[in-house]
C-alpha cells in the first residue's frame, strides 16, 4: 500500500488538541500554559505538572529555542519516511521551558550541534495539515 493510499497515520486532532494544529496552520507554535503559575507544558495535560492547577490555557509560544540533542534517523519505520531518509531527529528546549521532540530541517546533518539556536518552521502533510518543525536560526 502506498503512502497516498494509507493515510491512517495522519494526525486527527480532537477538541483537546486542535489548538496546536490550528496554530500551526496559522504559522505559530501554540503550547499549553498554566494560568496560575505560568508553567508551560507539552504534550497535552489536564493539570499543571508544577502546581497542580487545572487552569490550563493554550498560548502562542515564541517559537525560539536551543537544540538539546539530535540524532539521524537512518531507517524508515513510518510511511512518511520511506523516501525522506535521513531525517534529523531533534529535541528542542523552547524558551518557555518545554522540551519538544521534533525534526530539524534546512540543515546539513554534519552541521548540527547541541546548543545551536533554532526557530519554528512548518511542514505540510498530504491532507493539507501543517505540523511544526524547527530550523537553525540564520543570523
Amino acid at each position: 500500500m502506498s503512502q497516498s493510499e494509507d493515510e491512517s497515520w495522519l494526525p486527527k486532532p480532537s477538541s483537546r488538541t486542535a489548538p496546536f494544529f490550528e496554530a500551526a496552520s496559522e504559522g505559530k507554535l501554540r503550547l499549553q500554559c498554566c494560568d496560575d503559575c505560568g508553567t508551560w507544558t507539552f504534550p497535552y495535560r489536564e493539570r499543571c505538572q508544577h502546581c497542580g492547577s487545572r487552569s490550563i490555557v493554550w498560548r502562542d509560544a515564541s517559537g525560539r529555542g536551543t537544540l538539546y540533542s539530535h540524532g539521524l534517523l537512518r531507517r524508515a519505520y513510518h510511511p512518511r519516511h520511506e523516501d525522506r531518509l535521513p531525517i534529523v531527529l531533534a529535541q528542542v528546549d523552547v524558551t518557555e521551558g518545554v522540551r519538544l521532540s521534533t525534526n530539524l530541517v534546512d540543515v546539513e546533518p554534519g552541521a548540527v550541534k547541541v546548543g545551536m539556536e533554532v526557530e519554528v518552521a512548518f511542514e505540510s502533510l498530504p491532507d493539507g495539515g501543517i505540523i511544526p518543525v524547527f530550523r537553525p536560526v540564520i543570523d
Binding site: S8, P13, F20, S69, H78, N103, I131
Partner: peptide
Amino acid sequence: FGGDALSSLHGLYGFTGAIPMFAMA
C-alpha cells in the same frame, strides 16, 4: 501509527520505540 493527534506526531517525526531517545541522549 495514528491514534491521538499529538501522540501521532511521535511516529511522524521519527520517534518510534526507545532507540531514538537513547541515541539522542
